[in-house]
Nucleic acid binder design. Structure first.
Lengths: 129, 129
DNA sequence: TTGCTATTACGAAATATTTCGTATATCCTT
DNA sequence: AAGGATATACGAAATATTTCGTAATAGCAA
């Protein structure tokens, strides 16, 4: 089950997907509360967005109870990979390398993270084609 | 001179910035031709976008000649960094590490690129705080 | 039951972005 | 000077996205 056909999530939809990925199936109220920790959003705004997401297939919902429970349909890793690919194309002309350099160079990565990346590179190199 | 105050470029504006960064100051016609190698866009559409970019301060233009020459104002590295930061926040919850892993894991990086990254990491580690 | 609260449904306004038609000006060729 | 090609200016339509008001419905408490 890939993300084929599913449209790219908009910025707001992505915010909601993050919440659903992090917390599992959730009610609109819960998602709205989480959103409001970052910025002010009206309840019906969140509701509408989530309904649209269900329409688009980005999420599915259980309507058995009065309070509907929404669940991300778009799989986390798949979706992130796809968005990353598009972002690399749009912003770094398709060069993942340039992006990684920029990401690492920003001083964002801690020593532990650098170690992890080194380990990852070793793994990639050993299983090289 | 940072990008302070300058609004984030839209997707289309970013496409144009890429062309200006890659080719230096350019005419609308040239930019439009480059765009059309990827997708069909009308000339006046490109023109309008570039005029908007000038309004927003993303680009500046020389109007001495009949054919105006546009130049990116937003600096390449700065802009990419900023977009990357926002993207990391939005898509990887602020974890540059997760993003790098995803980018490297995609099998996108060649051996040479991996070597470059290793070198970069060594450099980062030596100048560690 | 009656009223209060929480929920979804629906549609439309508000905003942002993209696209292009048309008018007008300028340059170039003859 | 006239005509054609090419440029910019301008505004508005088309599209995409976000936001919310209002109404209808269901649950709950008194």
């Amino acid at each position: 089950m890939t993300d084929h056909k599913r449209p790219r999530p908009t910025e707001s939809e992505l915010e909601i997907l993050q919440i659903l990925w992090a917390n599992g199936p959730s009610s609109v109220r819960f998602v709205n509360e989480q959103l409001n920790q970052k910025r002010e959003v009206g309840y019906t705004t969140t509701l509408k967005l989530m309904q649209i997401m269900a329409d688009k297939g980005l999420a599915s919902r259980n309507t058995d109870n009065r309070s509907h429970i929404y669940e991300a349909n778009a799989e986390e890793g798949e979706t992130r990979k796809r968005l990353l690919d598009e972002f690399v194309d749009a912003t770094f002309q398709g060069s993942a390398m340039k992006l990684v350099v920029q990401a690492l160079g920003g001083g964002q990565a801690s020593r532990e993270e650098l170690d992890e990346i080194k380990a990852l590179i070793r793994k990639l190199e050993s299983g090289e084609k």
